[in-house]
């Protein structure tokens, strides 16, 4: 309709209107400009929500299978709460040191950002080391993931979380190298913000793990 009125207004013949002029009246052909990376944080947030669903399914599996010991060892025979408390502290410390990295990043201090990232990595690696020690201890006692439904669900849930922390650490070291090569460019700041969300998200998942798996298992 708009195209035909425009035709009469410009007093041209119907064939003179180009196909672009007709279609342009119905939808935008010119893409309006989005600043680079404007939607990255929302996209990454939606990824985290999908990751949240993965963990929800693993929690559901643990909730269903958590009581199936197959005459094997139960949580009270296996878990050591002081070790888990240390582990939780490591992850909590790594969360606040990552927060400090974000604060110095906003001030544009590259060296300090790298420093806090490496402190975060030390806490993250300690968390992983303690978890691997716990896993090897369990497997050494014959309580590996093959022993019972409870242990399968336990290793899947806690192992998936540990795998996320491992990938977070790889990502963290990549960003430390990128920072020394390119500095705090807008792209690198965006990457650091994504990793910040990822890292704090893993701490949120761990709250669920230590409450539902360890603390409730010891009741």
């Amino acid at each position: 309709m708009t195209a035909t009125t425009r035709d009469t207004m410009t007093n041209s013949t119907a064939t003179a209107a180009s196909p672009e002029a007709r279609t342009a009246a119905f939808y935008e052909l010119e893409p309006h400009h989005h600043p680079e990376g404007a939607s990255t944080m929302l996209g990454f947030w939606i990824y985290l929500m999908s990751d949240c669903l993965i963990f929800a399914m693993l929690f559901a599996a643990y909730g269903v299978l958590g009581g199936n010991f197959a005459a094997g060892p139960g949580p009270k025979d296996l878990f050591e709460l002081p070790l888990i408390a240390v582990n939780t502290a490591m992850l909590l410390f790594s969360s606040i040191t990552y927060g400090f990295a974000m604060l110095v990043m906003e001030k544009g201090k590259v060296r300090a950002t790298q420093g806090w990232l490496l402190v975060t990595a030390v806490f993250g690696a300690s968390f992983l080391a303690i978890e691997l020690y716990e896993f090897s201890h369990l497997i050494h006692e014959g309580a590996g993931p093959w022993r019972s439904g409870f242990l399968t669900a336990f290793f899947s849930l806690v192992g998936t979380h540990g795998l996320h922390v491992t990938f977070g650490l790889i990502w963290l070291f990549t960003l430390v190298v990128q920072l020394s090569k390119k500095g705090l460019t807008p792209a690198n700041q965006r990457r650091l913000q994504c990793l910040s969300l990822f890292w704090h998200f893993l701490d949120v998942i761990w709250i669920g793990v230590f409450t539902f798996v360890y603390l409730m298992g010891m009741l």
């Binding site: 404007a38 990255t40 606040i96 400090f100 604060l103 807008p186």
Partner: peptide, 25 residues
């Protein structure tokens, strides 16, 4: 400007302050 220090356009994630992190911790 690669070192835009007053980089306040909203990327979706809010910026925390020292106070936020310490209270949260």
């Amino acid at each position: 400007n690669p070192h835009a220090e007053d980089h306040h356009d909203d990327h979706g994630a809010g910026h925390g302050t020292m106070r936020d992190y310490v209270i949260g911790f």
